[in-house]
């Protein structure tokens, strides 16, 4: 829903790195977006592309790594990908699980040419 402000935050971090490396040309940025981060990868790509266009960074492709939601069973500690927080543990059938992955919203890497 606020992919544009997230895209702007990513570009701010690129700009900050560019200040530290004045001779670098940025060729790619890698981000990790979790299934339940609330961010739509397509909207983020589009927003980022719009913000980069006609700036010193253009073109700057955004590589998005998608991370599924992972729940951990509170009974047997089994970890499994799940569509929601209410899916029973596939190992023991217990209903109470806790979310341990899928909320990621991280910048993973920047690729530069110097």
């Amino acid at each position: 829903m606020h992919e544009l402000s997230i895209a702007a935050a990513i570009l701010d971090k690129v700009a900050a790195e560019a200040e530290r490396r004045p001779r670098a040309r940025f060729t790619k940025v890698g981000v990790r977006i979790g299934e339940i981060s609330g961010i739509d990868p397509d909207a983020l790509s589009f927003g980022f592309e719009c913000l980069v266009k006609d700036t010193q960074f253009d073109p700057l492709p955004l590589e998005i790594e998608f991370c599924p939601r992972v729940q951990r069973c509170l009974a047997c500690a089994h970890e499994f990908p799940a569509p929601d927080s209410m899916t029973a543990c596939p190992k023991c059938g217990h209903l109470a699980t806790t979310c341990i992955g899928g909320e990621d919203l991280d910048i993973v890497f920047m690729e530069i040419e110097e």
């Binding site: 997230i6 935050a9 990513i10 971090k13 790195e17 060729t27 981000v31 919203l105 991280d106 910048i107 993973v108 890497f109 920047m110 690729e111 530069i112 040419e113 110097e114």
Partner: peptide, 15 residues
């Protein structure tokens, strides 16, 4: 030469 610089930072770490 292209180098991949690891960042591993939350986008919203400033917030």
């Amino acid at each position: 030469m292209t180098t991949r610089v690891p960042v591993e930072q939350k986008v919203l770490n400033e917030n």
